[in-house]
Simulated assay, not measured.
Amino acid sequence: MKIEEYLETLPNNLLSGEDTQLSEKSFREIFKFVNLGKNDNFYHLGCVSERGIEIAINEFKVKKAVGIDKNFEKITGAKKNLKEKNIQGEMICQNIEDSDISDASVILFWFTDENIINQMLEKFEKLKPETKIITIWGPLPDCLPDKVNFPYIINKTPFKKAPSLQDQLLAIFGVKCVDFVTAWEFAERYTKSIGSPEVRNDRFLTIIQTLVIWINAKKLGVACGEEIPESIQTYINIMKVHFDIDFEYLLKE
């Protein structure tokens, strides 16, 4: 099967972040990376639970913390948990497209739905200067990142427009071209950040993401060298022979 067909069989949240529970370790990494602190109004869009809100308040002493999610059951449970712990965070059941985030200084946003992203991009562009939008894996569309600690990426308002996809990709990876080592390193960072109880699954996802990164770089003309690296070809063959997942057609498009 083609890789797109295989990815459709995976839980949507594995790639999109929607309905994903980030680990406490990931939240702390993100908050340290963005230098979250007492002067910040923090918003977690698509929060699922109160976990990030609790850490932002208790450990990073933010002025305000708000979680927004459309799932009524999960927001109800999150409100209950915060109340039981006497934590003054705010949990809102709402589509994020309808949310009021006008006083935000830091926003955590992890979605891949283009309609949602485009609607939110319009809202983000109206925020006060220096507002930080944190995304995971990729930056906001057509924007150059202001700061990267992959897979965590910061775009600050007003956004810096990327001249091209090539410029955006190289800015994320911080290299002049993408080789196998870069693709593997960044894929591994991603799988470690989202966590998994099965290490074997993490490695499998790392291989897939490595191939996706390198092939995208190749198609954009920013892979190192003209030849396919031996390691990339080996993993392409393993995916085809042992898992019936086809990557080769992507190189022919």
Rank of each mutant, 00 (worst) to 15 (best):
M1D: 02
K2T: 14
K2P: 10
L10P: 00
N12D: 00
S16I: 12
E18C: 02
E18Y: 09
E18R: 12
D19N: 15
Q21I: 00
Q21W: 07
Q21D: 14
E24F: 05
E29N: 13
F31I: 06
V34S: 13
L36Q: 06
N39Q: 11
D40L: 06
D40E: 11
N41Y: 10
Y43E: 00
V48F: 06
E50C: 13
R51E: 13
R51V: 05
G52K: 02
I53D: 06
I55N: 04
A56E: 05
N58Y: 02
E59F: 11
F60N: 03
K61I: 01
V62W: 04
K63N: 09
K64D: 02
D69M: 04
D69T: 04
F72M: 06
F72R: 11
E73A: 12
T76D: 13
A78H: 05
A78M: 02
N81A: 15
L82H: 07
K83Y: 10
I87K: 12
I87W: 06
I87G: 12
G89E: 01
E90H: 09
M91A: 06
Q94V: 00
N95K: 11
E97K: 08
E97T: 05
S99V: 03
I101S: 00
D103M: 08
S105T: 15
V106N: 00
L108Q: 01
F111S: 05
T112Q: 14
I116H: 09
Q119K: 14
Q119C: 02
K123H: 07
K123R: 13
F124P: 10
K126I: 08
T131G: 06
P141N: 10
D142C: 12
D142P: 01
C143T: 15
D146N: 15
D146S: 15
V148L: 12
F150K: 07
P151M: 01
Y152D: 01
Y152R: 08
I153T: 08
F159T: 14
K161L: 13
Q166L: 08
F173K: 10
V178K: 04
V181I: 07
A183S: 15
A183E: 11
F186K: 15
T191N: 13
T191R: 14
S193C: 13
G195I: 10
V199Q: 09
V199S: 13
D202W: 00
R203I: 14
L205V: 07
T206N: 12
T210D: 03
L211A: 04
I215R: 02
N216A: 09
N216F: 01
N216I: 12
A217Y: 05
K219W: 01
L220Q: 10
V222T: 04
A223P: 04
C224A: 11
G225W: 13
G225S: 11
I228P: 01
I228N: 05
I232C: 03
I232P: 03
I238H: 08
D244C: 06
I245L: 12
D246G: 04
F247C: 11
Y249D: 10
K252R: 15
K252V: 12
K252N: 14
